[in-house]
Structures are given as structure tokens and as C-alpha cells.
């Protein structure tokens, strides 16, 4: 099980659009809401109403500031992060019990909770912080790519997508098959030069990020030329302009 498939039939995953994400955390909470009642053990919250509340989340949104090398003002970027369903997933190969696996049919990386012993090694192996050991269940939790939604015949066709994608108000999250060059996700990545996170970790992530578009370009782009300088001139211009209408 913990050996990685040489290749997968599909490569299902997410595209996250950093140019569009407003950092609203809808995907974070809806993910929690769906998953705590579905796949595997609940996502617990320790000390939920106390001094140090801390629970399991499969998706978290960071916020960064980027100071452009070219000068100019710092830019804020909201940055959602969940499992990237890597093709060379180190989290899978390290797992001693076989609980972690990558599916041949669609490339989803999952944890079989019945086998997991909660050693945490897979979380160590993941460069992206995509795995969290649930404190109450003692079991490794991670994004399932909503495997219990995307094939779920009890859901209408249009809802057979991950909870976070369905809920994202800004439409900054896209789900699809990267193995299909014509899928929306593949096309977005091609058009917007989608990138891999930490390529130097050689994990070959399936999920891709669309970088923010270039910003703050309206500074020296020119001014309007004056038609008139004072009220009198303006009224004269007005008469002429109205005449022309």
C-alpha cells in the first residue's frame, strides 16, 4: 500500500487562485464542517471554549506580505493550504502501517484510519504541513479531496465536488483532473502560469497555485488633457460639446 503507484489514471486536485482569494476562511470552516461528520473520526477541538482552543483542520489560510523586489508597496496575499496530493508523496512511503496510500485510479492521497497508529511520521515527511494528528482520536487527518463527495451518488451531480470548492465565495478554488489537458484546471494552469509549491522538495504536487497578477501599475500612466481651466472655459466647452451631441 505505501509504495506509490508508478502513475495514476487521473490526477485529481485543486487549483488555488492567489489573485482571487480574499482570505475569508470559508473553505477552512466548510471543510471542517463536512469532514467532522463524514470521512473517519471527527475533527476534534480541544479546550474548545478555554484558554488554548486547538482543533484539527484539513485546510488553513495563511496571510503573507510580499515586498516587491522592484520597489513599491508591500502586497498582501491570502494563502490557503491543504494537501497537494503529490505525485511523489513522501508521506505515503514513510508510513509503516500502510494506512497512508495514494490511489491508482485518481491519485488522491488518503489515510485509512483503521490502520493508522498515529505515529506522526507522515506528517513529518510532508513539507507542506498538510497532515495533522487529531488529538482526541490519535489518528492522522488530512484532506481527502472530499473523496466522499466527488463520487457520491447521493449528491446531485453539480455538488460532486469538494466542499471547499463548492463553498468558496470568490471562486478562488477549482477542482478537476490535471491528467486531462483540456480540463478547466489544466487550462487555468497553462493560462495563468500555475506553479508548484517548494519544487525543491521533489514531491511533484498535483495541486497548483495561480500567482497574483501584477499590481499597482496606475501611477505614471498619464493624465487627462484639460479642455478648460476655469468655470467660464468649462461652460464654453459645455456649449460646444452639447452642440455636438
Amino acid at each position: 500500500m505505501t509504495s506509490l503507484p508508478r502513475s495514476t489514471e487521473k490526477k485529481l486536485g485543486l487549483v488555488i487562485d492567489l489573485d482571487t482569494c480574499v482570505g475569508c476562511h470559508a473553505c477552512v470552516v466548510n471543510c471542517k464542517e463536512w469532514n467532522t461528520s463524514n470521512y473517519g473520526a471527527p475533527l476534534s477541538d480541544m479546550d474548545a471554549y478555554g484558554a488554548a482552543p486547538e482543533g484539527s483542520f484539513l485546510n488553513r489560510v495563511h496571510a503573507y506580505e510580499v515586498t516587491p523586489d522592484t520597489g513599491g508597496c508591500a502586497q498582501t496575499v491570502h494563502f490557503p493550504k491543504s494537501c497537494l496530493h503529490c505525485e511523489d508523496a513522501p508521506c505515503v512511503t514513510v508510513c509503516p502501517t500502510g494506512a497512508s496510500y495514494k490511489r491508482v485510479e485518481d491519485g488522491i492521497v488518503l489515510v485509512n484510519e483503521q490502520d493508522c497508529m498515529g505515529c506522526g511520521l507522515c506528517a513529518w515527511a510532508c513539507p507542506y504541513g498538510a497532515r495533522e494528528l487529531d488529538a482526541l482520536a490519535g489518528i492522522m487527518k488530512k484532506c481527502t479531496l472530499c473523496v466522499d463527495r466527488i463520487y457520491n451518488d447521493n449528491l446531485p451531480k453539480e455538488d460532486q465536488i469538494p466542499a471547499c470548492v463548492r463553498t468558496c465565495p470568490a471562486g478562488a478554488r477549482h477542482f478537476g483532473d490535471f491528467a486531462d489537458p483540456d480540463s478547466t484546471v489544466s487550462r487555468l494552469v497553462a493560462e495563468r502560469e500555475g506553479i508548484d509549491l517548494m519544487p525543491e522538495m521533489s514531491t511533484r504536487p498535483v495541486n497548483k497555485y495561480l500567482p497574483p497578477r501584477e499590481k499597482d501599475r496606475l501611477s505614471a500612466s498619464g493624465a487627462l488633457s484639460a479642455q478648460s481651466e476655469d468655470p467660464k472655459g468649462f461652460l464654453a466647452w459645455l456649449d460646444k460639446a452639447l452642440e455636438a451631441l
Partner: peptide, 16 residues
């Protein structure tokens, strides 16, 4: 079965 075990290839649990 789905709650604890290995997901079937196309798991389709009852939603509600």
C-alpha cells in the same frame, strides 16, 4: 465502514 476504513474507490455515503 466509510467512517473508519479505507475508502472504497467511489465512496457514496448517505449525506443526511
Amino acid at each position: 465502514a466509510n467512517r473508519a476504513g479505507m475508502a472504497e474507490a467511489r465512496p457514496s455515503p448517505k449525506v443526511s
